[in-house]
Write a protein that binds this DNA or RNA. Structure first.
Lengths: 205, 205
DNA sequence: AAGTTGAGCGTACATTTGTACGCTAATTTA
DNA sequence: TAAATTAGCGTACAAATGTACGCTCAACTT
């Protein structure tokens, strides 16, 4: 890659990072202005356009990148689970760790999921869908579920996890353990219930 | 109430209604400006301050009012359920109806739940908590659950319902039936799973 | 009847925002 | 080496925003 393209990439990264860094509990993506982001990245406002058509395009990039990061980290966690132990427990613990080290990735996903732009909502939904279908596939094979039951189960699990994530962002670290325990309990409910419903169906046939 | 206070109340209502009316899939509360709301309500921007300290105060009023509306409507639905039939099915159907006739109430609750203002998040959480504890209380008595199991179950149910609400806002009416069916299935999973876990605990004692 | 209160208004201003336009200087291409 | 491309900048401007200030006049109080 030429010197020029390299520098451009560097500036682009600076923009994305600047935007991520400005996110916080008090600051959502949609409240960021183009000028603020450019300022933080150390470039002139008008130079922003050399990299993104508008703030929307930046935001979609962030959602995609964030989702990717998340999936990569969760995948590592799943490898840990293969060594043995409760899949649910290990997944929840991994999730909490990921959340603690990437809070702003979660903020943008959680907030824009119910956001004001259809494109954003769709992008977030796409990321969540990745999780759901990966999990559904896993359950279908592992626990011998009907496809639509597996799907409903996976969706419920993912929703509960993400939701707990939203709460976790707002509480002290010490309270997070209790939250994780409750989440584990809820996930077990879903798994157990799905199993029971599956058997009832099987018996009927 | 005097003529004056009456007029004041009327204007205040106009402001709240104006704000609610401006909400949509493309417009969140935090994207509304004081001037826009005042314009829609038919008063001068500066007169806004005769009623609310700032937009934040207006928003909190909307959350409280919205939550109240919701609970009142769901309560009516519960009365319907007492006549017999599946509690889950009837509750879900009621919920969908409520959502369809008050979409903007949901929008503000769903969006500000992951919003930028701690006060808003707390207010929404308070409203959701009402639902959870009402339901937990009901389940504890009805199904003879341990308090903390009842709590975890109720929370899971409410989360799944609200979450489906968020999706429902974004889809065509015809697709909502499938969504409702899937939601019912998920709620049954939780209920069945909770029951199974409860029995396992009881047997152990 | 006289005095007080307060809802609503108009004017005004400083800030911030997005973005159009044209330049510069360094890199890339031919 | 000459020409073309382009990342980044500075200037500029129109639009919108929140809110301070002081006025009016109808409603209320005494």
């Amino acid at each position: 890659m030429g010197v020029r393209a390299q520098q451009k990439e560097k500036t682009r990264r600076a923009l994305v990072d600047a935007a991520f860094n400005q996110l916080s509990a008090e600051r959502s993506f949609s409240s960021l202005s183009l000028r603020e982001v450019a300022r933080e990245a150390g470039i002139a406002p008008t130079s922003f356009y050399r990299h993104f058509k508008d703030m929307n395009e930046l935001g979609l990039t962030m959602v995609d990148e964030g989702g990717l990061t998340l999936r990569q980290m969760m995948r590592k966690g799943r490898q840990r689970a293969e060594a043995g132990g409760s899949v649910i427990r290990i997944s929840v613990d991994t999730f909490i760790e990921v959340l603690e080290s990437n809070p702003n990735v979660f903020r943008i996903l959680l907030h824009e999921r119910s956001g004001t732009s259809a494109a954003f909502r769709a992008a977030v939904e796409r990321e969540i869908e990745h999780f759901i279908s990966e999990l559904a596939h896993y359950t279908e094979a592992q626990a011998n579920r009907t496809p639509d039951l597996a799907r409903a189960q996976a969706e419920a699990l993912v929703i509960l996890v993400f939701n707990a994530g939203a709460s976790a962002l707002d509480i002290k670290r010490s309270e997070r353990k209790a939250l994780a325990d409750q989440l584990v309990l809820q996930l077990r409910m879903v798994a157990t219930g799905a199993e029971a419903l599956q058997q009832k169906m099987d018996n009927r046939a």
